[in-house]
């Protein structure tokens, strides 16, 4: 393993120092417990939107702190959910009378730690709700698993609820919106190469030259299925089919298409895949009205991509287009 790091145990804190230096106008970073809040937090009379999870998925979540998106992000150690006290610190720093919505990716660790934090906040008379995002169609949605993982849909969800909170929606409305988004967003990911967790020092899985992990998560956990490497056309068709058939999306639907690099896949391939996905959706009569392309929810240096589809309507379009000003997503300002 080669990485540009010092002590693996200090990698998150040292990286946050760089984030703080680079974006002092947008974010404020507190350490031990680590949390990142808007430079102007707490914002009066606004529902706070807070997310977090293990580190290693940057820019998610820390890169999305700022006006129109997150009030706070809580980065845990690499691939490890943050602890309740860290989440609680983020809540304290951002949450007033209008309350807060916690955006929680559906992993056992995240759910348990954020749940505890919400209980602690309730004990301090703060109105804190959680929404669990579980958009990954690779995992069978059954009670025989921990349930579907939260992946690419998280980025879209954070943007949309952030915009709703920014326009002044109350906590009930923000929460209702969040659940609506969770209900109509679906994703699938593939990996061509594994990530390497700094403290582990070894690639998280071994993948042969001719193999692809289909249905990969974002933590270097192996995918659901190992398939032979195939052309971009065939692979993207396989991905589009998995996502479209799940909700299902159908002819006449308007969608946001999010083509995400898992980190190590360069823009050349990400855009190439995006172009194919646009074509395949058009073939199905599904109209792409908004798009996002790039590395927004990653798994360290893992090579691969994910596709996320969100069914759009006028309200979601307006919220998507609303101004956002964060280190890694910025428009309208």
């Amino acid at each position: 393993m080669k990485k540009i790091i010092n002590d693996p145990a200090a990698v998150v804190a040292e990286s946050l120092r760089g984030l703080a230096a680079a974006h002092a106008d947008l974010v404020r970073v507190a350490y031990d417990p680590d949390h990142v809040v808007r430079a102007d937090a707490p914002v009066a009379d606004k529902v706070a939107v807070i997310s977090g999870g293990g580190s290693g998925h940057e820019p998610l979540h820390t890169g999305f702190v700022g006006a129109g998106m997150l009030d706070a992000a809580v980065p845990g150690p690499v691939f490890t959910s943050p602890t309740p006290d860290a989440v609680q610190a983020a809540i304290s720093a951002t949450t007033g009378q209008p309350g807060a919505l916690l955006v929680v990716k559906n992993y056992t660790g995240d759910v348990l730690n954020f749940e505890t934090a919400a209980e602690l906040a309730a004990a301090e008379d703060l109105d804190v709700r959680s929404v669990v995002i579980d958009d990954d169609v690779a995992v069978a949605d059954s009670t025989f698993t921990a349930g579907r993982r939260g992946v690419g849909g998280t980025v879209l969800l954070e943007k949309l609820v952030g915009a709703a909170a920014a326009r002044g929606d109350g906590l009930d409305a923000v929460e209702t919106l969040a659940r609506r988004v969770v209900g109509q967003v679906r994703s699938i990911g593939v990996a061509l190469s594994p990530p390497t967790v700094p403290h582990a020092g070894e690639p998280s899985f071994d993948l042969g030259e001719g193999e692809i992990e289909f249905g990969i998560g974002i933590h270097g956990e192996p995918g659901r299925e190992r398939i032979p490497a195939e052309s971009a056309d065939a692979l993207v068709e396989r991905m589009v089919a998995a996502v479209v058939e799940d909700l299902p999306f159908g002819e006449g639907d308007d969608v946001l298409l999010f083509t995400n690099s898992m980190g190590g896949t360069p823009p050349m391939e990400t855009y190439l895949a995006h172009g194919i996905a646009e074509r395949l959706l058009a073939d199905r009569g599904i109209r792409v009205t908004r798009r996002l392309v790039g590395p927004y929810i990653t798994s360290l240096e893992m090579q691969g991509i994910s596709l996320t589809l969100l069914r759009m309507d006028d309200e979601l379009t307006e919220l998507w287009d609303a101004p956002v000003h964060t280190p890694s997503l910025r428009w309208g300002v």
Binding site: P77, T80, A200, G220
Partner: peptide
Amino acid sequence: LIELDRAIGDADHGENLDR
């Protein structure tokens, strides 16, 4: 423990518990 978690998880269990 990291190695066991690497195989079927996300390679952090040993690090987490040790911390």
